[in-house]
């Protein structure tokens, strides 16, 4: 299966949900103008509000169903083709069962109810690892998600990770072990450490994205926020990486941009055949699980493992 993939990096208006929906509409229009229809669009973390909101999370958080209905309405109002179909992943602050989350949703949008497939909210991922150090303060304002789950779509099995989720190799491993062939990574990464040819945070991202792709034989689609929030500037650099770890395309550090690539879903199988690391992981899963179980259950005079061990 050939899939036309795109990732967009944009600068949301702070805490302005309606304005950011309209910006999404502009993007949908741009994609619809292309002679090559896009199948799959990945957008950054907290695209509907901006990232650093502190207590403002409560002002902008919405249920995932409501966000899905809103982006579907924008898609249908901006795309004249009733047969249009676009799968989208995007990040937003979610209100769910009386708590707030830094979340991402994956949905299929259609131009009308008469399109080839049905519009549908497939999955909501709630950020599993909440950065709460230095410039980050997420655990103060949102609740940690409890699961990392792959899900089926018309374009194959996929998974969503949000920013720090991807910095822990176990997250992508869980997604790949559940069958994900495309892993979306939605990010809001502030630029730091301008010593070398690329900012330090971005050099880490390059290694992480390539590492995830190669270790698990998956496509990685990375979308990063751009613009400044206060003194913190986000380092965009959205990109698409193939299952061999090759970066197919990348956006600049600064400014809004759209990257796109045509990918072959079969490449996952080919890459995993020549580099069967995921298979090796599966075969060792019992032993690994035993280690994790023992570590999690460890008892004794020591403090429980946690942040103090960092």
């Amino acid at each position: 299966m050939t899939i036309q993939v795109a990732a967009a990096q944009v600068r949301p208006r702070k805490a302005d949900y309606q304005a950011n929906l309209e910006m999404l509409g502009d993007l949908f229009e741009q994609l619809a103008e292309s002679t090559t229809p896009t199948d799959l669009l990945t957008l950054p973390e907290t695209i509907l509000s901006g990232y650093f909101l502190e207590g403002g999370v409560r002002d902008v958080a919405r249920p995932a169903d409501a966000v899905f209905e809103d982006i579907l309405a924008v898609f249908r109002s901006r795309c004249v083709d009733p047969e249009a179909v676009l799968d989208v992943s995007l990040g937003f602050y979610e209100e769910y069962r009386g708590q707030y989350y830094n979340a991402a949703l994956y949905a299929t949008l259609t131009g009308s109810d008469h399109a080839a497939c049905a519009a549908r909210l497939h999955h909501v991922h709630r950020k599993f690892f909440l950065p709460t150090y230095g410039v980050f303060d997420e655990q103060r304002h949102v609740t940690r998600g409890r699961t990392i789950t792959a899900f089926d779509t018309r374009l194959g099995r996929q998974a969503l990770l949000i920013c720090e989720d991807a910095w822990h190799s176990v997250s992508a491993a869980l997604a790949a072990l559940q069958g994900a062939r495309i892993i979306h990574i939605l990010s809001a990464s502030p630029g730091t450490d301008f010593h070398g040819p690329t900012p330090g945070n971005l050099a880490c991202w390059d290694r992480i994205l390539q590492g995830i792709a190669v270790e698990h034989g998956v496509f990685v689609v990375y979308a990063g926020l751009v613009g400044f929030e206060g003194g913190k500037g986000f380092t965009g650099s959205s990109c698409i990486v193939d299952p061999w770890g090759k970066q197919l395309v990348a956006a600049p550090l600064l400014g809004p941009a759209l990257v796109r690539a045509e990918i072959e879903a079969d490449d996952v199988t080919i890459a995993r055949t020549s580099m069967p690391l995921l298979s090796d992981l599966e075969s060792a899963l019992g032993d690994i699980a035993a280690h994790f179980h023992a570590l999690a259950a460890r008892e004794g005079p020591e403090e429980p493992r946690g942040r103090s061990d960092a």
Partner: peptide, 23 residues
């Protein structure tokens, strides 16, 4: 203390434009 001066220049220029004009 070494910095990538061209990169820092671009970054701070973008910061000033963003904070003064846009924000």
């Amino acid at each position: 203390l070494v910095i990538n001066a061209p990169a820092v220049t671009v970054w701070l220029t973008a910061f000033l434009r963003d904070q003064i004009v846009i924000h």
